[in-house]
Design a protein around this nucleic acid. Structure first.
Length: 467
RNA sequence: GGCGGGGUAGCCAAGUGGUAAGGCACGGCUCUGCAAAAGCUGCAUUCGUCGGUUCGAUUCCGACCCUCGCCUCCA
């Protein structure tokens, strides 16, 4: 069996094979955040998707080098730095730290490399020099350096690999009309932007004068540096296909003359309660907003992982509440398994693993993968209830689950410690129950509830759970 | 206008030329002093509409309706 993925280049699901002749190492690049604000759940869907791809590759036995850039110089950043009268590093540092905290809260594995654009100005300049030397880039009268689509095509290169483009049919929208740069052609894009007074302190010296990098160039420079001129996988949100990824291909292939990326993967966007997320609709949420409403990163991760990455996902609060219940069902089953297994290890031999792997390998069919998980939970619960699950069975089931969870990343929830006064209340209730003083027992139960603790009467006695 | 996704139960969401996974919600049952929690269990004669191909279509083809995205710095 082998992992199959939808490659945007071929617009079809293809078996993934790495460039590494040994078939072991895989280079994965994902367009990271532009750190001008807190990332919203739409952004998070993409990063959780990237995490899933990485974990699926690792599950398949590959040794992944995961690179995610931090774009820390860009128009919006410069604007806000100016508005807030702060410095670029101070401003971007804050949002980068927040981003990494959130990434962790969502159970994403940390990328092996997180290069910052501002730390790669030399590489960016070198790449632009190469493009200029090859004749596919030019400096315009405004001092900026642009990439020439026409010259690039003239070299026999293909612009428009990720989607069908008809540059003549494209609407010159407001954005084009408002573009005041002096490009030779509207399709051309900036590699190096000449300094303007509105840039404030944000500028670097270059062979073309003071300025700063264009939007797309940093991804080409950093991915090539980290993973080589040709690498395996490049991921991002679907909106980045054009122009960002198309331009990355043009810059990279224009400079190296080699194919840039073998597999391009794009994650679809999400809607919130059926509508496009926007601040004016009040359905714009960051992870922090959801945490403030009492949801955990783990719950958000579960929800974001509940549908296929190439389908638009509808994020709803009903769904988030459902995520909590679903997770509790899994946790409950695992807790029972742990108790049964006595903490001993075992060899993973569960039907779960096979069904899960089959689903995963089919272009990350996560819904089918979850179905396998829940069928396993039901079957396991049944066997536990009828006492037909032995200790080694339980250990083997847990070992299988751990492999599955290496992809899902739901992890283990440790049960909250019960404070002494809470357990004292619970004991008082048990005493009252034994004395058949149910009125008092119920009052104590309500008391516990108001303090955030639920009491569950199980066959093995009362159990406290944080509410 | 160009290009590309979607429309499957109350909600979310898989899937297949042969008679609809899974989750949430909801109902029933077990457990319980009663609850809660947990567990078990039930829950789409039907897959946007209309035609066509076929022994058979939700799945293929055509038309239409609705919806979403991209079309130059947006994940």
């Amino acid at each position: 069996m082998a992992l199959k993925l939808f490659n945007t280049l071929s617009r079809s699901v293809r078996e993934f094979t790495p460039l590494d002749p040994a078939g072991k190492k895989v280079g994965l690049y994902c367009c990271g955040p532009t750190v001008y604000d807190y990332a919203h759940i739409g952004n998070w869907r993409t990063f959780v998707f990237a995490d899933l791809v990485r974990r699926a590759l690792e599950f398949s036995g590959y040794e992944v080098q995961h690179v995610m850039n931090i774009t820390d110089v860009e128009d919006k950043i410069i604007k806000r730095v100016r508005e807030q009268k702060t410095t670029l590093p101070e401003f971007t540092g804050k949002f980068e730290a927040a981003f990494l905290d959130d990434l962790k809260a969502l159970g994403c594995r940390e990328p092996h490399q997180k290069p910052r654009a501002t730390a790669h100005i030399a590489e960016i300049i070198a790449l632009i020099e190469k493009l200029v030397a090859r004749g596919v880039a030019y400096q315009a009268a405004d001092g900026s350096v642009y990439f020439s689509i026409e010259k690039y095509r003239g070299c026999g290169c293909c612009y428009g690999q990720l989607l069908k483009l008809n540059l003549d049919e494209m609407r010159a929208g407001e954005r084009v009309a408002s573009d005041e740069y002096e490009k030779e052609s509207v399709a051309d894009f900036a590699l190096w932007k000449a300094y303007g007074s509105e840039d404030g302190e944000v500028a670097w010296d270059s062979p073309w004068g003071k300025g700063r990098p264009g939007w797309h160039i940093e991804c080409s420079a950093m991915s090539i540096k980290a993973l080589g001129e040709t690498f395996d996988l490049h991921l991002g949100g679907e909106d980045l296909k054009f122009p960002h990824h198309e331009d990355e291909i043009a810059q990279s292939e224009g400079a190296t003359g080699k194919p840039f990326v073998k597999f391009w993967l794009h994650g679809a966007h999400l809607l919130v309660e059926g509508k496009k997320m926007s601040k004016s609709l009040g359905n714009f949420f960051t992870l922090r907003d959801l945490q403030a409403k009492g949801f955990t990163g783990r719950e958000v991760r579960f929800l974001l992982l509940s549908s296929h990455y190439r389908e638009t996902f509808n994020f709803t609060f009903d769904g988030l509440a459902g995520a909590r219940t679903s997770l509790a069902r899994i946790d409950e089953c695992l807790a029972k398994l742990r108790e049964l297994s006595g903490g001993g290890g075992g060899d993973a031999n569960s039907g779960l693993l096979g069904a899960f792997q089959t689903a995963l390998e089919e272009d990350l069919n996560i819904s089918a993968a979850w179905a396998a998980v829940f069928e396993w939970v039901r079957e396991t619960n049944k066997r536990i209830a009828e006492n037909s699950l032995s200790r080694p069975d339980a250990a083997a089931a847990l070992a299988g689950w751990e492999k599955v969870d290496s992809v899902l990343g739901i992890g283990v929830v440790t049960e909250a410690e019960v404070p002494a006064e809470i357990s004292a209340l619970a004991e008082a209730r048990t005493t009252a129950k034994k004395a058949k003083d149910f009125k008092r027992a119920d009052a104590l139960r309500d008391d516990l509830k108001s303090q955030g603790w639920l009491i569950e009467d199980t066959a093995k006695g009362p159990k406290l759970k944080k509410h």
